[in-house]
């Protein structure tokens, strides 16, 4: 059976279609659910075996990326996301979804304005680096996919960084620390981190935009094409178990 998945959005989210497609390719059965549909559709979220929080510009990011999204989730859902995680549901926050998870306190650190001061869209290579994270477990090949954000510079207090390293919670690093490989100036080239359970992954790049060979065919790589589909397969597998 295909595990039921919810792609959670707020007004201004815009990569929900891409996330739906990626989850379908990976064997999930996703539906889209917007905060405007609550509380009417709360049951679907309660029953979801997997949750992806879509990228975009929720509420225009008018008060800072992900801030209003997080406040509205708190207002409309209370602690439901944390409860879902405690019951073993994998959660992926991509880009604006990552920013929301950080604002909501489900992941540590902060996502600040890119070092270059503006939005940046380019393909990057990501090295999966966590065995704890259910989404990256077993992945060895680099994943290639685009970033598309203005506020993606991951920062955190030194103690938090130490904890992330020690607990194997840095899920993805950019290929190198230098621009443009690290497109936003993130500390330690961090592209994604997970929570202590390994179920919640937040990442700035967009794996949902590289799940078929054609999406990267015009980019001539000499080595492995580096599709991100295995990441979603991992999530779906974790949702099944």
């Amino acid at each position: 059976m295909k595990p039921p998945a919810v792609v959670l959005t707020a007004p201004g989210s815009n990569r929900q279609g891409d996330a739906l497609f990626a989850l379908e390719q990976a064997g999930g059965a996703p539906v889209c659910l917007d905060l405007l549909d609550l509380p009417g559709r709360r049951a679907e979220l309660e029953q979801a075996a997997l949750i992806v929080i879509a990228g975009g510009f929720s509420y225009g990011d008018a008060l800072g990326s992900g801030r209003v999204f997080a406040l509205e989730i708190e207002r409309l859902l209370g602690d439901l996301l944390a409860e879902k995680v405690s019951r073993g549901t994998p959660v992926l926050g991509v880009c604006n979804g990552f920013q929301m998870l950080v604002r909501a306190g489900l992941l540590p650190g902060a996502l600040q304005h890119n070092e270059r001061g503006h939005f940046e869209c380019r393909w990057v290579a990501l090295q999966p680096s966590s065995a704890r994270c259910v989404w990256t477990r077993g992945l060895t090949e680099p994943i290639r996919c685009p970033v598309a954000h203005g506020e993606g510079r991951y920062t955190c207090a030194p103690a938090v960084l130490g904890e992330l390293r020690a607990a194997d919670r840095i899920a993805f690093r950019y290929e190198t620390d230098a621009y443009p490989a690290n497109p936003n100036g993130s500390v330690d080239a961090i592209a994604g981190v997970c929570d202590p359970t390994g179920l919640v992954l937040g990442m700035m790049p967009h794996p949902e935009n590289h799940v078929t060979p054609r999406q990267s065919r015009a980019i001539v790589w000499q080595d492995h094409p580096g599709s991100a589909l295995p990441l979603f397969r991992n999530g779906v597998a974790a949702a099944r178990s």
Binding site: E120, R122, V211, Q215, Q222
Partner: peptide, 19 residues
């Protein structure tokens, strides 16, 4: 690079070429 040319996942040949 300041324009999102990837959203919707349908971009096959993008404005900048090559690896």
């Amino acid at each position: 690079h300041r324009y999102d040319h990837e959203v919707l996942g349908a971009t096959v040949v993008r404005p900048m070429a090559g690896a």
